[in-house]
Nucleic acid binder design. Structure first.
Lengths: 149, 149
DNA sequence: ACCTATAATGGTAACAAGTAACATCATAAG
DNA sequence: CTTATGATGTTACTTGTTACCATTATAGGT
């Protein structure tokens, strides 16, 4: 935990940004809720518990900053709210989502299946891939079992 | 053109919806701007040219309706605006996007590269895929040439 | 230590996309 | 020709996010 905070601190400082108490509280919330796909509002509520004086705008600014530094990934599942995920080592930016239309759960697939495709894009389309996003919409295992009952 | 309108009319009627003049104008705009990834506001402006009396809410309602009937596909590129694409035969729902971070252009790739992956999801994860979404973010050929200058 | 420039913050107003409410108009069935 | 229902246009509203601005914290230079 502390090691990861330290690392993020260095990432910030390398771009001349400071790890202020507010930013640290925000990062801690993200660390404590990995894989949770928190919205900005969610993060705000959680940070408020520890640092009640923080302002909503600061949370938005921090998330935006961390997003630019690629510390978090800003996701959008089409429901009108941006969600923010920490990018750790195992779980870089290359993962995919299984979004269930019944229960709205989001499962993550950690493998990166698109390496070959990205090479093809470079060669055939001359498109330089910086990032990608792959979401599958459908029905998850649990809901399929439910339906069969 | 007229044939496609007729087909959409039947799709609507099969669910007891009518192809009102406003809906027809909206569909015509979509037909005339295929591949354009229009936002609701874009559609509204374009429909206004032909049918100045149409209301914004009607356009939203129509796009929503067409989306439910799978006549159009509602897309979200993460910029906070929903975009609407007609689904024609060639161009079902399986296509991918190359989104350029410099010029914000969106190119489409018509091939479906994910058939094998969807089979793996069915088998290994027991996830029933109904739809998917694959976007690549990066720098397009044109902008790469610009940068080299 | 003391200025001073700059960064960061909190509160709030503003914004924009989308939705809900509601009165009016159109239409199809009896 | 009436009546129930569908569809529309206007407008007010909601919600996520950003812009603004006065205040506070911080780091360097003297």
């Amino acid at each position: 935990m502390e090691a990861r905070i330290e690392k993020i601190k260095q990432q910030l400082q390398s771009q001349a940004y400071k790890l202020t108490p507010q930013r640290e509280s925000t990062v801690r919330v993200l660390l404590e809720h990995e894989e949770a796909h928190l919205s900005a509002e969610d993060v705000y509520m959680l940070v408020k518990e520890k640092a009640p004086d923080i302002g909503l705008a600061t949370v938005y600014r921090t998330l935006e900053l961390l997003s630019e530094l690629h510390v978090v990934e800003k996701l959008n599942f089409g429901d009108g709210v941006a969600r923010y995920d920490l990018r750790n080592e195992n779980h870089r930016h290359h993962h995919h989502h299984l979004i269930c239309g019944k229960c709205n759960s989001v499962e993550e697939i950690m493998e990166d299946w698109l390496i070959e495709l990205e090479e093809r894009l470079e060669n055939e389309y001359k498109f330089q891939v910086l990032d990608h996003r792959l979401d599958f919409h459908g029905i998850c295992r649990k809901c399929r079992v439910e339906i069969q009952k």
